[in-house]
Amino acid sequence: MKKILFNPFEKYSETQLLIFGVAAAILSTYLSYVFNARFDGALDMHLVKNITLKQAITDNVINIASLFSTFYIIGFLINKKTRPIDILNTVLVARSIYCIMPFTHFAADTLEEFAVKTAKINPLDPAPIAFTATEIITISIVALFGIITLIWTVTLLYNGFKTATNLKTIKHKVLFATAIILAEVLSILFITALN
């Protein structure tokens, strides 16, 4: 079970991984549209008032393309035998976790109220802002859920990239981290420019 959840790349064929990854990408795009969740960065998701189907599709395509391009270029630098299909599967499977993120929309109103109250905090004014127990519990649950999802996604990216490139050294690991940062920056720039 641990291998299925964190390193399916060693257990399943490239065709199985591709089919699963494409299906998950379509599902996450649809769910982001239904639940008003913008995937506005390679590893980001924010709840919004509304989102068009075009925005949902554009966001996911840009995120996948940004991750794929940076991971493939850096993967090729590490190992010239790195195959595009292995990098694509890594990206698609890792992003499959984002299918569950839009369901945090149940907390949208509470998150918005929390954000409004937080914006009113003035470090020069000692008067405390009162947060309700519901707000604190909801924020804590959503934050924990987001952290777990991010860790799970990065773990899948790492294991898939490691399998695809035969990653071994510290230098390779630094390049992996660089690929994630570059993908995040690229995706945000393109999404901002196109939406």
Rank of each mutant, 00 (worst) to 15 (best):
L53M: 14
L53F: 15
I97E: 05
T155E: 05
I74C: 14
F76Q: 14
T70S: 11
E135Y: 05
N79P: 10
F161H: 03
L167D: 12
Y12A: 15
T165V: 08
T165D: 12
F106M: 11
N63W: 07
K120P: 04
K117T: 06
K173Y: 03
S69N: 02
V142N: 10
K168L: 11
G160H: 00
W152V: 02
S13Q: 05
P102H: 05
V142P: 12
F20R: 06
T52A: 10
L186Y: 04
P102L: 09
I188M: 15
K171C: 01
G21N: 07
I100P: 09
F103I: 04
A115D: 12
L189P: 00
T58K: 04
A133G: 09
E184W: 11
R83Y: 02
I78M: 12
F161A: 10
K173C: 02
L5Q: 04
L186T: 07
I78D: 12
L67S: 04
L186A: 12
N166D: 15
T178V: 14
A164K: 04
I64W: 05
R83S: 15
I136H: 01
T104F: 13
I137W: 06
I62S: 01
I137S: 07
F68V: 08
V142E: 10
A42T: 05
I64S: 07
F6L: 14
T118R: 06
N79H: 02
F176Y: 08
Y98C: 09
P84T: 09
T104M: 14
I188L: 12
P123M: 12
I57H: 05
T178Q: 07
V93S: 14
I180C: 10
E113A: 03
D40V: 01
L27W: 00
T70H: 00
I121R: 03
N63V: 02
A133S: 10
E10M: 02
